[in-house]
Simulated scan of single mutants.
Amino acid sequence: MQIRTWQADLVLLGITAIWGATFPMVKNATSLEAGGVPTYWFLAVRFLMAALLLAAVFHRRLRRLPAATWRAGVLLGIFLFAGYAFQTFGLAYTTSAKAAFITGLSVVIVPVLSLVWLRTAPSPAAWLGVLTALAGLAMLSLDGSLAPSRGDLLVLMGAFGFGLHVAGVSRFGAAHDRYALAVIQLGTAGVLSALLHLADRGTVLPGVAGVLWWGGPAHVGTAVIVCGLLATAAAYLLQNLLQPYTTATHTALIFAAEPVWGAVFAYLLAGEVLTPRGYAGAALIIAGMLMAELPAGRDRRAAAS
């Protein structure tokens, strides 16, 4: 099937909407005060459920895979796990607003990685879009002191993990079976999350059935199903399939819309309202994405594809 760049971009934008919608759901499910579960337990079940589901559907593609595909998938899984793990560690030592902005710095990290690792120079339009989206992220997320803390540095390492994952999908997606890559990377992230939970809690990781039928809060089981099926299995499969039709830099710009979607769903589900500065920041993020659609940016992406 012939996929156009704008079609891939539109689906990737839809993925960020799914991730934005799950913010309040995940926060509630991992709140121990609200009867939730430990964060790394949730991540492990989320990723392992997604990996098992995709493996069941695409099991024939996993047979006799070359070692290079396994190495690429494991590496992508390590990058994905590092993004979530460092972000979660850092959140214990910094504010969520600063963490959201620092995580959004991947929109700047990815073009640098594209230049160094992928040997692909982003277009001037893409760089302009990056800087505009970065300014929007700052207005949307930052508040109070800008002095870096230990938590800020940990979240920054998480941003590098997410940036490496986006760049890695562009690096390996064209050379390997993308379905197999999705299964391997999600399985790797799930296993590493389970090991981290075991090291942190010293308890055996419960199974998925334990979440759904142990008699615990219904919101935990709902969050596991929605995040495992939609925000992980479907979202990362689509990212692996469609990102090669655009560029890593443009994907990072699209993913910068995630806090905008988060704000939208926070308003719809919890009645939270942005400040005027927040609305201005959201507008700049959208403007940055549109700038990457300038003719020079489209021509560069077409050549790269």
Rank of each mutant, 00 (worst) to 15 (best):
L269F: 14
A257I: 02
L241A: 10
A266F: 00
G271A: 07
G278H: 09
A252R: 10
L284A: 08
V273D: 00
L241M: 15
L290H: 00
T247D: 04
L241Q: 15
W261D: 03
N240E: 06
L253F: 01
Y267W: 15
G288D: 00
I286C: 07
T251P: 02
T275D: 09
F255L: 13
E258W: 07
A287S: 12
Q239Y: 02
L284H: 02
A256K: 03
L268R: 04
A287I: 09
L253M: 10
L284E: 00
N240L: 10
M289T: 06
A263H: 04
L274V: 11
T251H: 10
T275E: 11
A248W: 06
V264R: 03
L242E: 13
L274Y: 07
R277D: 08
T249L: 08
M291W: 03
A292T: 08
P244Q: 08
T251G: 09
M291P: 05
L268Q: 08
G281P: 10
V273N: 02
L269H: 05
M289K: 01
Y279N: 04
V264H: 00
T275Q: 12
A280G: 15
Y245D: 06
A252K: 08
L284Y: 01
P244N: 11
E293W: 01
P276H: 09
L242N: 12
V260C: 05
V264F: 11
L268P: 08
A256Y: 05
A252C: 13
G288Q: 01
Q239G: 07
A287Q: 02
E293R: 12
A283T: 12
T249H: 06
A270Q: 14
Q239T: 14
E293P: 06
L274R: 03
I285S: 00
T247R: 09
H250Q: 14
G278L: 05
A292C: 02
A283S: 12
Y267H: 08
G281H: 10
I254Q: 03
L241R: 13
L290T: 10
A270S: 13
G271I: 05
A287L: 15
L241F: 11
M289H: 05
L284N: 00
T251F: 04
L253K: 03
V260H: 01
T246W: 07
W261G: 07
G281A: 09
A270R: 15
G281Y: 03
G288N: 01
A257F: 02
M289V: 15
L268F: 09
A257V: 03
A280R: 02
L290G: 03
M291E: 00
W261H: 12
R277K: 14
Y279L: 15
T247W: 07
G278T: 13
E258F: 07
